[in-house]
Amino acid sequence: MKKGKDDMENKLKKILENAMAQIELSEQLDKLGDIKVSFLGKKGELTSLLKSMKEIAPEDRPKAGQMVNEARAKIEETLTTKRKEFEQAMLEEKLASEKIDVTLPGKKLAEGHRHPNTITLEEVEDIFIGMGYKVVEGPEIEKDYYNFEALNIPDNHPAKDEQDTFYITKDILLRTQTSSVQVHEMEKGKLPIRMIAPGRVFRSDEVDATHSPTFHQIEGLVIDKGITFADLKGTLQEFAKRLFGEDTKVKFRPHHFQFTEPSAEMDVSCFKCGGKGCRFCKGSGWVEILGCGMVHPHVLEMSGINPEEYTGFAFGVGLERIALFKYEIDDMRLLYENDTRFLKQF
């Protein structure tokens, strides 16, 4: 007599209980593999049971087969669930062990830094380039003519003496002002002109906290038909607001320069104190920032421009003055020492 399906059912039940218990009790992921082999593998218990199917009455076989398959599915499902649990636990354990101290310092590349003069200059350049100005340069060792005579400062003029010029020969000198570049630009004869000319200038001043025999200026020149003093005011006001902030106020005071007429100096409201008065503006609320004016008709004439047809304005800004002011640097010497502890702050 063939064995009954009940006997098979009992065996199956036992196998299933056994498998469940083993899975439940397993503690490691790799154990699950062993369990899978011992029950579902080629020589596994369930496989053996399936092999004994022929001993079952044929009419019971489908039913028995179904039961075995169900048991297999059950075991596989349980194994999968258990595996996922293990994996989840392991992942959590791994993540927990990988916890870092986020307050430790960040890692940086040792990047270099631009000089505060250069940073300031680039800001100024960007403002004027945006307004359609070319940035041009001229020689630092210059002819007397370009530095003085063509700017309406003839030989023996007191204004020439005031500038403490370094001379190489009688006619060749270290330029005392970037205004010399104006003349070169005008001589090219291409009008209109909108240019700024940044560069090094030299004056015979001993080195101290506020003086240096080498420093930088930025010259500006606009020449066209119908340029007015009002345009000069508007342009420089725009410049000041862009450089020092939208709330900046400007004040134009009459002044004298040989190569402009009318001439002015521009003060800006102190952006440290907003104009209330502080140590930077020496209590006045204002800081003198540049000299400017309408190009003197004689200067235009000397460079071959007809002052009846063209007018223009010019201005000159001290770069260090702005950089020192902007970064609250109290000693100009720091700019030329090149101590990296200073340079790395910018």
Partner: peptide, 10 residues
């Protein structure tokens, strides 16, 4: 005011 004159490229 700002210069009303010819456009220039900077």
């Amino acid at each position: 005011t700002l210069p009303k004159s010819s456009a220039t490229t900077g």
